[in-house]
Write a protein that binds this DNA or RNA. Structure first.
Length: 497
RNA sequence: GGUAACGUGGCCGAGUGGCUAGGCUCAGCUCUGCAAAAGCUGCUACAGCGGUUCGAAUCCGCUCGUUACCUCCA
């Protein structure tokens, strides 16, 4: 049933059978958020995508170490010398300590991810906590002659690197071509070539996020943290590196260059996995375009583009119903459809809970039915194994669900299904929905209202002097830890003490 | 300008050279006090034009359209 997982590797532009370097161990690094703003739908897509990969690898029995970083330093606002970094800019606006801003948005990120049932990574390193490692890596690259220092800043020398390596191998770029038509950006006079990128930046006088280094008081460059931290926790070479498609260039390209140019002398990751973007009206949802929707807005429905609130599981299902390498277009209609589809899957879970395999009266197995059921179950895994095609898996689960419902209603005879087939069907459905896709039941309805209804029946029964029913209701509620209080003013309830 | 994708039925969204994707919507049926749920049935598709092929939505070419990356971005 469990064939090999095939993953599309951006590096080779092919689907490849996934083989860990040191089975059963798997090292996986994913670019986490830059914590200078609220998490939005795009963050959710990346997190959910790699959450499913993480869950599926674990489900297949691998021992996974999942590292997802928090970027809390280093992204320059622009390329100018006086460029402030994003964390700092926000800090000034709000008159907060940079670390306060970082903590604030990190907390929100964690809360929202938990709502989406995204498992926490095994290690969640912060760039600011790994300055020493980043300085060391910079030094290595300098020692290897592939970086140079100017005025206290250190830049990666792409052209020198490209003599013996291939800068652009990940994103399919050719450096000679690139050199021909580059936009000139301000503040690059320190760099020898426009492609060179900062490993270490000297901080201006007003820059408050700064650390001492052999070159200057400053801060690490944009791409260094992921190289340094993935190496620290996963080794010079490891299995999977994930992130949004928009990080492929230059971020991930630079990571490879840094890894090769340091003492790793290796690309680092072996499989590069990139999730595609969420779009709105066909356009990428992103900070720069200002068309993003925060997760809190989605959950509350408070946004001009939203017709209603959408629950976390609706969002998760919405994301999973598309393949991660396709763009996914946001719309209210699509989300409403996702809500219903999700509910349908949950109803299936409940049906399975109630569906018992008969202890006796087993009939002659229906060969065809058994085969059909096993094939449908297998299809569910086939989707997962084919580059984590959750859209196909969900489609297969719906097909399986039809059979499950029919068995439940007696339209298909459960006695003619073998015990083994039945267990396979049940396990497949439950495991994939709950543990792999990570969809869980959401509370619906209002408990107070439900309780109110029960109390109304209680009152009716009491007035009718139907004391058997009265006692039954009392006993039932007591099992839930609730006692009924008959007051002069009416019926009320309290928690049992 | 360079590079890379994409264009599927009312909507979303998979997919393979020939075999039902799936969800939502809509219509009908079964069931039902009325419903709902569930099951069954129906509806409609592969941007356009060529080419390869016994056969292409699926491969190739061209055209049109959309997007992404090339600057921080999940």
């Amino acid at each position: 049933m469990q064939q090999k997982l095939n993953l599309y590797n951006t590096l080779t532009r092919k689907k490849e059978a996934f083989e860990p370097l040191h089975a059963p161990f798997v090292g996986m690094y994913v670019c986490g958020p830059t914590v200078y703003g609220e998490p939005h739908l795009g963050h959710a897509r990346s997190a959910v995508t790699f959450d499913v990969l993480y869950r599926y690898l674990k489900y297949q029995g691998y021992k996974v170490r999942y590292v997802r970083n928090i970027t809390d330093v280093g992204h320059l606002e622009n390329d100018a010398d006086e460029g402030e970094d994003k964390i700092q800019k926000r800090a000034k606006l709000e008159h907060l300590e940079p670390m306060e801003v970082v903590q604030h948005y990190t907390n929100i990120y964690h809360v929202e991810m938990e709502k989406l049932n995204v498992l926490p990574p095994d290690i969640e390193p912060r760039a600011s906590g790994h300055i020493i490692e980043q300085i060391q890596m910079t030094q290595e690259i300098l020692d290897n002659g592939l970086a140079y220092e100017v005025n206290g800043s250190v830049y990666f020398n792409v052209e020198a690197y490209n003599k013996n390596h291939n800068y652009g191998k990940l994103s399919g770029r050719n450096i000679e071509d690139l050199l021909g038509n580059t936009r000139t950006l301000d503040g690059q006079e320190e760099k020898r070539s426009p492609f060179d990128f900062a490993l270490w930046k000297k901080a201006s006088v007003t820059h408050i996020m700064r650390w001492p280094s052999p070159w200057s008081d400053g801060f690490p460059g944009w791409h260094l943290e992921c190289s340094a931290m993935s190496r620290k926790y996963l080794g010079d070479t490891f299995d999977i590196h994930g992130g949004g498609l928009d990080l492929m260039f230059p971020h991930h390209e630079c990571e490879i260059a840094q890894n090769q140019a340091s003492c790793n002398h290796s690309d680092g990751p072996r499989y590069w996995v990139h999730n595609n973007m969420i779009t709105v009206n066909g356009q990428k949802m992103g900070k720069s375009l200002g068309n993003f929707i925060n997760l809190s807005e989605l959950f509350s429905g408070k946004h001009d583009m939203l017709e209603q609130a959408y629950s976390p599981m609706t969002i998760r299902f919405f994301i999973l119903q598309a393949h991660y390498r396709s763009t996914l277009d946001f719309s209210n209609e699509a989300l409403q459809a996702a809500r219903k589809g999700y509910t349908k899957l949950m109803n299936g879970l409940n049906v399975l809970k109630k569906l018992k395999y008969p202890e006796e009266g087993i009939a002659e197995p229906d060969q065809k039915l058994n085969e059909d059921l096993l094939k449908l179950a297998e299809d569910c895994y086939r989707g997962m194994n084919d580059d984590l095609n959750t859209a196909r898996t969900i489609a297969s689960l719906f097909n399986l669900l039809k059979k499950i419902n029919s068995l439940y209603l007696g339209q298909l005879k459960i006695e003619t299904v073998s015990r083994g087939t039945f267990d396979t069907v049940r396990n497949t459905y439950q495991e994939l929905v709950l543990n792999v896709l990570g969809l869980e039941e959401e509370e619906t309805g209002n408990r107070d209202e439900m309780l109110g209804m029960v109390l109304a029946f209680y009152k009716e029964a009491k007035e009718a002097k139907d004391y058997d029913k009265v006692d039954a209701i009392r006993a039932g509620l007591k099992r839930q830890g609730i006692v009924i209080k008959d007051l002069k003013t009416g019926v009320d309830w309290a928690y049992e003490e």
